[in-house]
Amino acid sequence: MGAERNTAAVPTAAPRSGARVVLGLLWSDKFAFVAALFLIFVVSCAVFGPLLLGGTATSMNLRLRNFPPFTLDHGWLFVLGADSLGRSMLARLMVASQNTIAVAAAAVAFAMTVGGVLGLMAGFLGGWFGNIVMRLADIIMSFPSLLIAVVVLYMFEPRVANLVLVLGITRMPIYMRTSRAEVLEIRERPFVAAARVMGASSFRVVFRHVAPTVLPTLTTIAALDFAFVMLAESALSFLGIGIQPPEITWGLMVAQGRNYLNVAWWLAFFPGLAIMLTTLSLNLLSSWLRIAADPTQRWRLEIPRGRDG
């Protein structure tokens, strides 16, 4: 959190045409470039996968149970093998990406928005309100997410929306705390003081001047959190209180596949790999973004080979 404090954003200044510069900067970091390509692929799977392969992903064929990967004997759909009910792993991975990305994105967005706003207000208003928000953060942090999950899933159904709620609530404290801490520092800065002196309302000061300054830090955390949420979703499935079939997510696929680790490793490996590559890509891209958006660091991308520091 504090680590990112120095990165408080100065948006990418664009002397040349914006998109070209961005692409150029991206190209100069090959890891980030590949990561961006991969994310584009995942997102298009999430958007189109269920439309194209929804039926294939649920069509069962017990004779192909645990069919091994890397052969084309049963067509390209089975190139990643089949699961324990003989369903195409490839199709399931692509279809599951929709729920997975939707759950993670929605939960992180929920946590970031609600947590961020609460934190901003707590930092700016302070006093009893600030205190309540901080105590709330304490409570949520030491509250076992498992219990929230069981409560929600017992009272409602284990559907995607409910899972988003569970994961979103449990991830809120970090945004509450971070944005409050940032605000505490920023509100003493000259430009905020100036805005106040010039008679801007508190509301305006917070949302016009403070929020944009806090946002980059929050997005960095969100990129990390995205990974965390996908893994937490998987862990809930492992414990039997997460999303349940017939819905599918990568996390659920890993959780179900773990029963077969010693006979059919691919059931758990491919969805695990998908989670890993997605989060890795997000992180690489976000660390690229941090450097690209920071004028004091950007030279690292502009000079072909990093000079010794």
Binding site: F31, A227, L231, S234, A235, F238, G251, V254, A255, R258, L261, A268, G272, I275, M276, T278, T279, L280, N283, L284, S287, R300, G306, D308, G309
Partner: peptide, 30 residues
């Protein structure tokens, strides 16, 4: 951090991030 952008830095980042993104029960059973 000592030599940012060099091979050790990139490897350390990628490996540490990748391992942190693996589901822990999967890692445990494996």
């Amino acid at each position: 951090a000592y030599r940012p952008g060099r091979i050790f830095d990139r490897l350390a980042s990628v490996i540490s991030l990748a391992s942190a993104s693996a589901p822990d029960f999967w890692v445990a059973i494996t």
